[in-house]
Structure formats: C-alpha cells, structure tokens
Design a protein around this nucleic acid. Structure first.
Length: 878
DNA sequence: AGGAAATGCAA
DNA sequence: TATTGCATTTCCT
C-alpha cells in the first residue's frame, strides 16, 4: 500500500530558521556559512523519513513574489518583513540537501506551496494511496484534513508535531476541516495581511460558524444578528468573502509531475555524506555512518595473534600501537589487547597472549624502538599496573592534536580523527555500547577497532607533524608535552598516600556536628526539609520565613554563600545553614569522596588530564587533587590526611610566587613592576603606592588589599562591575581605580589592547612557548560573547605561559631527580606549585634542587621566585 | 539512566 | 557582569 508525504518547504524552512536563531548566535560552519535553518530542516526530514512509511514524497516551495492571489488582493502579504539574508542564503542549501536525499521538490509560478500540496492531496485521495500526510507549520492546510489525509503541524521547535485528523480538527476548533477557510475569512490572518472582519477574533468567529456554518450563509442571514455585531458583519461582508477566497487552497493546479515522479528511491549516500561533512554536521554524519555500517561490506580480515610463539620475530621501528583498555579510569584497568600497525603489517594481540611473550614485552619497553600512539600516558600507566612498561613513544596523536588546537581534543578517538578528515574508525560507543549496556565486545570487534585506531595514528602522524611545524609548535610538542606525559605517568602510578584513620576521625566529628546543626535548623523551621536542596531551602527562607530575596537564579531563589552572607543578621537560622553547608561540603566531597577514591594500597591515584584545558593547564580527576581546601582552617585540616608513603619522610611543597603578575610585567614591559620584582618588593604594596599615589608611610592594609584585587582582576580582564563586586565599592569608584591603574602602567594597557587586536586579526592568541588558544567568540554578534572573547584574549597568554613554565619545571625537576638518583618523588602539581615526598636525608638537597630548577626554567625580564615549605603532612607544608 | 542546574572547592 | 577547572547533590526527563 502506498503512502504519500507532502511537505510545505517554505513554512518549515522558516520554522527551522527561527527555532534555532536564538541569542543572535546563528549556527554556522567554520568558514562562516550559516547553517541553522538547514540543520533544523534536516532534523525534521530525518523525523519524517522515520515516521510515516512513505512510498512517495514531495516538498513544495513558494515560487516568486506574485501569485494568483495578488490578482484579487494587491495588498496580499504586504507588510511582511523581508526574509533575513541569513535565511535566504540557506535556501539553496536546503534544496541541494533535498536533491541528495532523493526527495522530489516542486515550485510553480503564481502558485504557493499550499496549492501544490492541496492539488496533490486531492488527487492522491482519488488514487490508490492508503494514507496521505501533510507536514507544515501553517494552519491554513488544516482544511485538507480528510479521512485519508492527516495534517501535521509543527509546534514550537521543529520536530515537535501536532497531528490533525478531521476529528482532531473538530476537537480543537469545534469546526470541520472545510470550515477552516470560513474561520480565516471571518478572523483574517495578520501574517498574510488579510483583515477579515475587524473586531472578530477566533472565539467570535467559531461562535458565528457554529450558528451559520459558512461565511456565505452568514451574510444572507445577518438579520438574525444584533447590535454592534450586526453592524460589524454587514459592513465587512465583501471583505470576509474575499478573505475566505484568499485562504482557500487551489486544488486544481496544473502539475508538471505524476505520482510516479514522486516515488522515493533513497538518497545519494556518498554525496550526502560529503555534503554533511562540508556543512560540519557531524551528528548527522555519524547517524548515516551507523546506518551504513549495517550494510557495508566487511573489511579485509584482521589478524589476531593467538600464540605467544608467533610474536618472537615481530618487532618494528616506527609502528603505531594501540593499547585497548576497557575502563575509562586506567588505573588497575583491564587491558584487552594491543594493536600493532606499520607499513607491512597490522595485527592485534590479546593481552593474555602478549603477557606470555617476553619478546613482545621487551619490544614495548625498548626505548630504542620508536612508536606512535594515541594517549601515551593512558597506555603506559595501564601497562605499569600490569608490571610492564611502554617506552620509546615519540609521537602521541592526542597531545599533538591538543597542541595544534586544544578545542579539537576529546577522549573519543574518532572525534579527534574527524578533525583530520579521517573517519575510517568507529565510535567507542558503537563497539562497546553505552551507559548500562556498555560491555566488553567480542574479540573480533575489539581487534578491528583497535587496529583501526592504530592505523589512523599511523596515517595521521605525518599530517600532524607537518601542522606542528607550520605553526612553529614542534618544540612545544616534542620538548614539553611529550616528556611531560612521561613525568605525569609516573606521578599518577606512584600515587599519594592517605591516612585513612585521620580521615575517619574527622568524618565522625563532622557527622556529629552536621546532625546537631540539622536538628537546630529544623527546630527553627518547625518541620524537616532537605537543606541540600536549593529549591526547598529557598522556599523555607523566602516564603516560610519571609526573608528578603537578595538574588534570583534562572529557576528560583539564589541561596548561595554571598546571599546567605547578606542575610546573616536577618535570622539566626542563616549562620546555621552556612555552617551546615561548609561541613556537608567537607564531609561528602572530601571525607567520603577521598575514601571512595582510595585504592587498596592506601593511596589515591589521580589522573591528570593533559589535553583538556583551553589554556594549557593540567586538570585532575578521580580524585581532583587540585582543589583540596586550604583557605579556611576547618577545611585545611583535610590536608592532614595526605601523608608521605614512608615512615619518617616529609611532604615538601614548592610554589611560584606571583608567577602570573611576573609574566604580565615581562610581556607588557612594565618597567616599575619589573624593578619591583627585581628588588623583591611586595608587589601589591608597590601597586598600591603607584596607583593610589601614596608613600610607604601612608600605606594601609586596606589600600594594599584593593591593589591586590586590582592585580588579580587585571589578569582576568575584569570589568568595573567585577571589581566593584569584589571590593564592595561603587562601579564608579571601581572604574576610577582601573583607569588609574592602566594610566599608571601604560605598558599593560598597551598589551591588553594589542593582544585583543592580535586575536581579532589572527583568530588566536599565543603563549611565550607558542601554545595557542583560538578565540572564535571575537567574531560573534552578541556583545556579551564578544566581551568574553576579549577577556579570554587578555588572560590566556598569561595563564598559559604560567602553565608552560611549570610544565617545563616539572620536566627539569624530574630529570634532575633521575640524574641524582634520589628516593624523593614528585607527587602532585597544583597549577603553580609542586608537591613532593622526601626522605629526611634528602630534604636540604631537594629544597635546593627544586627551587633552583623552578627559578631557572626560563629567563624573563623579571626573576622567577619559588617559595617552599615542608612538614610531616601536606597540612604542615604551609 | 542521563543531563542540567546550583553550589562550592582550588589556583 | 573576573580566568581555569571538578565533584557533589538535587531534580527533571
């Protein structure tokens, strides 16, 4: 049985455009082609293709400006806003898409899309179509609803659809489909500039039609109306009849097509995929791939090594290898196997087999045999846990990609590969499933996937290196990120010891105090509620207790620390809640959280993500050891649980002093700041003296505090508003401070302007070591987004250079420690500080080695300064 | 089960 | 309406 689908292209195109045109931030390709309407249209078509079991399909478009309706009414569709250029430019893309999709489209001079659809639906009902579906955003087409024909109207968005059979039309309007035109005749349609009867809206029109049935019948019985209504109708009889005629769809349009032309034969798959690639529609591309995979012919058979003996003679220079690991967290993870790919060979070794082959494992551990991988740290740490090692890796595609452009990076190999236009590899999800269904796949599947990844690495290496050279980033890659991965692997594998007894004691204490606070809070309120729920807490504070609302969030009352602070005198409950928040935070995130993350060896093994931040910093997860409390004594105690792994050793911390301000002084060439740093002066005090024009004697702690806030703000590209919030002063005063600062340090002002200009011109900013951050926000229409781009442009080189410097310090320190063959270990990096565990007898030597190495990493116009401290726990290293 | 939002911890 | 992150809880789909 045949099913015909008729689509109102114009109407849906508009819908698709406006549904995704929010915030003036239209979706476009990296080359600037607007694609939001196309995107919405594709989405809608995907849904249609899945939904209606179509055999025949057509998309109708309006042709030109004038239609036969203009003969009856000159002003038809007058006053319509012209189509936005951003949409007009997408019409041909949508048409091209439909052609590639294999869907017939039609537009006819003097007729509108409605009329084409009306004619085809009418003809279709008379032939052997079992079902006809009309898809549109325009209610006019409701008049076509019929026993065989259902009209589907888009609601908000593009894929949310309301379906109308004749019964559904009646249920909603109390009218039959044929009366829709009468409805239009009476109430008019502002969007088509049809007046109808002024003063008659939907409600009145329906009432009239229930009584009289049609406009024609109404006009012959106006004597039955009374008062104002009678006057209104009689005065506009002609207009109502005309509007009805205008709204009536023409069902006898001469058509240049037959139903055979509308028979759907499927898409031009390859070309459509190319089109999606051009449009950068990766999600749709992925969907097509998934569908294609099912049909695609199998690849050449893969080679799986099943006997360790076969591995005796296999070892190659410059192979790409891939260590396939099932778990996301690679510590103590299950290694499934290892793929090896090179010019002459491609095979997969299940890990049980690899383990048995000494030759194979020495091949992996051989520094002299160079290898390429994706994510060397992941591979290496997983192997270390199994008692093996991975050395001689001189190319990591993950790190290379990160250096080339940090936004192109993902844990998902395929996403990274797609940035090189390489797509001959599956998503992990396709191999293992996702969510609860994720599971180890059959060996053939895993082997194929693993080999695909190694093959991609092998093929993409050259491209990536070329690009690194072009961007003058080869040394950042080879001499910074690659060696750092080795250092981090060892740090993660070694881990940091936790004193669980201390943690438990603190936990018990906290638990008691939390329960006590809880009952006090409930007593004040008179009933228990969930204090952790901002929603419930908001209701209690601002409705039940009637406290003044300080700030609102998107979804309700704000109850954050700033708000509570302001309310702290308004009600005794506030202080209790503040303390409750502090203690539950410590308990759940730091006591419970750390206990959960602790391994059987009594240590936490964090994972440093080396290819994530947009500035070049590291990040730390499972657990995050870069945000252990320090500011408040209460939280700082947590650090007592971080201890050396051996009795009698100490924790040594070394941190860069004011590294970001030093970098700012250096790159902005600000003489007075450079001098101050050279002479070891208190830099915030110096700033206060320069900016507020006070002498040493007139200096107050308040002035210094203000200067410190400004110094911080400058690094972040702050606004007057930001500073005023921070210092609790008026915006006017804040603006004065900033202006004064930039006047005093004109070099910094100059730098800020230059770096933004540079970013606008080149699309990116760079650090001292040539790390890049691209800033597409600067090209956006939206002012707030552009402002964000400017702040990013000012901040990224500073934060990024600091990140570069400490990375280099880590490599140098690690190297020096190897050369000295020390027992001490580097444990953590926290952005501007390094944490070590050190045996007592190495302490003096390590202090010297670490601070000097950190200070000599690079020569700037200002000296780098590293401070240090140590003690039996991390808490004491302060 | 998965994702968004609110909150708070660090440099 | 200040930069970069991650984890927790709640709440909704």
């Amino acid at each position: 049985m045949n099913t015909l689908v008729l689509i109102d292209g114009n109407s849906l195109m508009y819908r698709a455009y406006y549904a995704t045109a929010y915030s003036g931030n239209l979706m476009k390709t990296s080359t600037g082609i607007f694609t939001n309407a196309l995107y919405g249209f594709v989405n809608m078509m995907n849904k249609v293709m899945d939904e209606y079991n179509h055999t025949h399909m057509l998309v109708a478009f309006d042709a030109g400006k004038t239609t036969f309706r203009h003969e009856f009414l000159d002003s038809y569709k007058d006053g319509r806003k012209p189509m936005p250029d951003e949409l007009r430019s997408q019409i041909n893309l949508i048409k091209k898409y439909l052609d590639l999709l294999g869907v017939k489209r039609l537009e006819l001079p003097t007729y509108e899309a409605d009329d084409i659809i009306g004619t085809l639906a009418t003809l279709g009902e008379q032939t052997d179509f079992e079902k006809i579906h009309i898809i549109t955003g325009d209610k006019d087409l409701l008049q076509m609803a019929d026993e065989k024909t259902t009209v589907h109207i888009t609601r908000k968005g593009v894929t949310d659809i309301e379906s109308f059979t004749p019964e559904a039309v009646f249920a909603k309007y109390e009218l039959s489909p044929s009366q829709i035109v009468d409805l239009k005749g009476l109430m008019g349609d502002p969007s088509d500039n049809l007046p109808g009867i002024p003063g008659v809206g939907e409600k009145t029109a329906i009432k009239l039609l229930k009584q009289f049935g049609t406009v024609e019948n109404l006009v012959t019985h106006t004597d039955e109306l009374k008062g104002k209504m009678k006057e209104k109708v009689e005065a506009n009889v002609e207009q109502a009849l005309l509007c009805k005629r205008m709204a009536t769809i023409h069902r006898e349009v001469p058509l240049p097509v037959t139903f055979d032309d509308l028979f759907y034969q499927g898409p031009e798959t390859a070309e459509l995929m190319n089109f999606f690639k051009e449009m950068e529609f990766n999600a749709f591309l992925k969907k097509m791939k998934l569908e294609e995979v099912k049909e695609e012919k199998p690849k050449a058979p893969i080679r799986i090594i099943l006997e360790a003996g076969e591995l005796e003679t296999l070892s190659y220079q410059n192979s790409a290898i891939h260590v396939e690991i099932f778990e996301e967290n690679y510590h103590q993870a299950n290694i499934l196997g290892i793929a090896i790919v090179n010019e002459t060979d491609a095979y997969y070794v299940p890990f049980e087999v690899a383990k048995e082959s000494q030759a194979f494992m020495s091949f992996l551990a051989d520094e002299g045999v160079k290898k390429s991988v994706f994510d060397v740290k992941r591979s290496r740490v997983a192997l270390m846990w199994q008692g093996f090692d991975l050395r001689g890796v001189d190319f990591d595609l993950l790190l290379a990609t990160y250096v080339i452009n940090p936004t192109n990076v993902s844990n998902e190999f395929k996403k990274v590969a797609l940035h090189y236009d390489y797509d001959d590899v599956l998503y992990d999800e396709e191999v293992y499933g996702k969510g609860a269904k994720r599971a180890v796949a059959p060996i053939e599947k895993v082997a194929q996937h693993s080999i695909d990844i190694a093959t991609a690495v092998f093929k993409l290496k050259e491209t990536a290196i070329e690009q690194l050279k072009e961007q003058e980033q080869l040394s950042l890659f080879e001499e910074m990120e690659m060696p750092l991965a080795e250092v981090l692997a060892v740090m993660e594998y070694n881990g940091m010891s936790l004193d669980l007894t201390t943690l438990d004691e603190m936990g018990q204490d906290l638990k008691g105090r939390i329960e006590a606070l809880e009952s006090q809070i409930f007593d004040h309120v008179g009933a228990p509620f969930n204090i952790n729920s901002p929603k419930q807490l908001g209701e209690v504070l601002f409705e039940k207790l009637g406290l003044p609302v300080v700030k609102k969030t998107k979804t309700g009352y704000s109850t954050n620390a700033d708000v509570l602070e302001k309310l702290s005198d308004a009600h005794p409950i506030i202080k209790l809640i503040m303390e409750y928040r502090t203690l539950t935070k410590l308990y759940s995130t730091y006591i419970e959280g750390l206990k959960k993350a602790c391994y059987e060896d009594g240590k936490v093994h964090t994972i440093f993500n080396q290819a994530l931040t947009q500035t070049g910093r590291l990040s730390s997860i499972e657990p995050n050891l870069q945000n252990i409390p320090i500011r408040l004594e209460e939280g700082r105690m947590i650090r007592r649980a971080f201890v050396p792994s051996q009795e009698g050793w100490v924790i040594l911390g070394a941190d860069y002093s004011q590294i970001e301000l030093r970098i700012l002084a250096h790159i902005s060439n600000t003489e007075s700041l450079i001098d101050a740093f050279k002479h070891g002066e208190d830099i915030h005090k110096k700033t206060a003296m320069d900016v507020f024009k006070v002498s040493e004697e007139e200096m107050t702690s308040d002035l210094r505090r203000s200067a410190k806030a400004i110094n911080f703000g400058i690094i972040y590209g702050m606004s007057a508003f930001g500073l005023s919030e921070n210092l609790n002063i008026t915006q006017k005063e804040a603006k004065k401070y900033i202006d004064h600062y930039l006047e005093t340090y004109s070099g910094i002002h100059q730098y800020m302007e230059d770096t933004v200009k540079y970013a606008k011109f080149n699309g990116y900013v760079s650090t001292l070591f040539n790390r890049r951050r691209y800033i597409p926000e600067l090209t956006q229409k939206n002012y707030a987004i552009r402002q964000f781009g400017e702040r990013t442009a000012m901040n990224a080189p500073i934060q990024g250079t600091a990140a570069d410097i400490i990375k280099k310090a880590m490599i140098d320190v690690h190297q020096a420690m190897l050369e000295k063959n020390v027992k001490s270990r580097l444990l953590l990096q926290v952005h501007d500080e390094l944490i070590f565990e050190v045996p007592q007898e190495e302490l003096d030597m390590m202090i010297e080695l670490v601070t000097k190495t950190m200070e000599n990493v690079v020569e700037l116009q200002v000296p780098l300064k590293a401070d240090y401290s140590y003690g039996p726990t991390w808490y004491d290293a302060k």
